[in-house]
Simulated scan of single mutants.
Amino acid sequence: MATLKELSEYTGFSITTISRVLNNDPTMSVSDATRSAILEAAGTLHYKKPSPKQRREPHGKLCFAIAEMLSPVEQLEDPYYLYLKNHAVQHCMDLGCTTVSLLEQDDGYHLAGRESIDGILAIGIFSERQIASLSSLHHNLVFLDSAPDELRFDSVVINFKLGVEQALDMLIHRGHHAIGFLGPSRKLDERKRPAPEVRRQCFIDYMKKHNLYDPALLLEAEMTAPDAYRAVQERIRTNGTRPTALLAANEEAAFGAIRALHVANLRVPQDMSVISFNDTPLSELTDPPLTSISTHVESMGRVAVGLLVQRARSTDEHIPLKIVVPPTLTERASVSSAAF
């Protein structure tokens, strides 16, 4: 019997859309083609709605608002945050909780069509002004994938340093020494202020520690497939220093790199190994399947929702928690031993 998550992966529609269609939500407006595709997939995958006994009644009356850093269009370009949201929403549904989206306008965030909520899940990074607006709506505020103020708010983040170390440990063990990094030198920090990009800095620190650092192997690119494609293509075209292995800041950058290598008739991993961060289901669909540092988006979403529920059910004062999730390396076919 399929889950809503599996239906979402099968159809490409969000968990929220699928749930509302299957529950005949009268306020949900979708095309006949969308409704038909969802119903057909539900039949094909033998989906059955959970009975009331399967729901966890103690949490049934809670409602949480979700604030998102990226717009729906931006999420299509980098689906990492879309996966984070979908897993969080799915866990809320599993607990019998409901979710609503927050609308951002010039004067801050607003609830759409609801008078009260039990907490807010903020996914991504937010500016000081945005954080102030969110905290004015509810004191139960949990940040997912950032920790802008550890003294005030609960947060769930990934350990980037550990992920970089795992990737580089494996590459060195496979005989690679000319290892490059593909990504931006600077990015917004956890309060949307310009700062050195964390993964890149962890890479530099590790390579210096092991006497392998070569600044010529840093390929500057935004974390998008087109810009990563441009950066790798330019390196190949100019016969610049070419790494035997490449660590990409995210999946989109890795996809762009692999495409540039294919166009140049260079093979992955024979001519260059590639590793990326995130490890969404898309990593298994590349050619070859992508070795990736898994950030465990499902676990991150579950932990964040757990904090929201715990705080909503408790009247006691609490110390804000910062939960750091350790990534793990998922090995696939995009990495091989270095040629000697």
Results as ranks from 00 to 15, higher is better:
Leu62Pro: 01
Gly163Thr: 11
Ala178Pro: 06
Lys161Thr: 11
Arg242Lys: 00
Glu77Tyr: 11
Lys53Asp: 12
Gly163Ala: 14
Ala339Tyr: 10
Ile293Ala: 04
Tyr109Cys: 04
Ile236Tyr: 06
Thr44Val: 06
Ala195Met: 03
Leu321Arg: 13
Asp94Pro: 07
Val142Leu: 07
Ala253Met: 07
Thr16Met: 14
Val30Met: 09
Tyr213Met: 05
Ala88His: 00
Phe153Gln: 00
Met207Pro: 00
Pro320Met: 00
Val268Ile: 08
Lys85Arg: 15
Thr241Glu: 06
Ser337Cys: 11
Tyr229Trp: 11
Ala333Pro: 03
Ala37Gly: 07
Ser135Gly: 01
Glu77Gln: 13
Glu252Met: 14
Val100Tyr: 03
Pro288Met: 03
Tyr213Cys: 07
Ala221Cys: 01
Lys49Met: 13
Ala2Arg: 09
Ser51Val: 15
Thr3His: 03
Leu62Cys: 03
Ala231Asn: 04
Ile323Met: 14
Asp106Met: 04
Asp214Gly: 06
Val335Glu: 09
Thr244Asp: 11
Phe255His: 02
Arg191Tyr: 02
Ala338Glu: 03
Gly108Leu: 08
Ile204Pro: 08
Glu104Asp: 06
Cys202Ile: 04
His91Tyr: 15
Leu212Met: 14
Thr328Cys: 07
Leu321Lys: 12
Leu329Thr: 08
Ser101Thr: 10
Thr11Asp: 14
Ala338Lys: 06
Thr99Cys: 14
Ser36Ala: 15
Ala338Cys: 15
Ser127Asp: 05
Gly256Glu: 05
Met69Pro: 03
Thr241Ala: 15
Glu284Pro: 02
Ile158Gln: 05
Thr3Pro: 01
Ala231Leu: 01
Arg55Thr: 11
Leu266Thr: 02
Gln54Ile: 05
Gln130Arg: 09
Glu197Thr: 08
Ile131Val: 14
Met1Glu: 11
Tyr47Met: 10
Ala304Asn: 07
Asn159Trp: 05
Pro50Cys: 09
Leu39Arg: 15
Thr286Arg: 03
Arg332Asp: 00
Phe255Ile: 15
Lys5Val: 09
Gly240Ser: 04
Leu308Gln: 07
Leu307Thr: 02
Lys192Arg: 14
Ser155Tyr: 00
